[in-house]
């Protein structure tokens, strides 16, 4: 059996759903961030897979993947900093307890 694009896509889908599940179900901010990372990585996998299987794609998918990785790193930094700040402010990182902005 040859590995085709469908396989990649299925893995990616699984990763995405896992990430979504974590994001939706967990209350801990750090965990949510981890879920987001999973979602991003599933997207990355898609980019790379499509780049591989699309004709004349000229590496654009790979380039995008690299961008996303860089972005994810930056995002992780900012998000963790926010989480840290939130913790200092509210002494918790449980997102549903931080409802000051809610009217």
């Amino acid at each position: 059996m040859t590995i085709g694009i469908e396989h990649y896509l299925v893995v990616s889908l699984v990763l995405f759903l896992l990430g979504l599940f974590i994001v939706v179900t967990h209350r801990n901010g750090v965990r949510i961030l981890m879920g987001v990372e999973l979602i991003l990585n599933s997207a990355n996998l898609n980019f790379v897979a499509f780049n591989r299987y699309m004709p004349d794609s000229a590496l654009s998918g790979n380039v995008f993947a690299i961008f996303v990785i860089i972005l994810a790193a930056a995002e992780a930094v900012v998000a963790l900093a926010i989480v840290l700040a939130v913790y200092q402010q509210f002494s918790t990182i449980h997102m549903d307890e931080i409802s000051n902005m809610k009217h």
Binding site: L20, V23, V24, T25, I32, M95, D96, M101, K102
Partner: peptide, 8 residues
Amino acid sequence: GVIQSYIL
């Protein structure tokens, strides 16, 4: 106002 529910 719950972000997670929005995402869902």
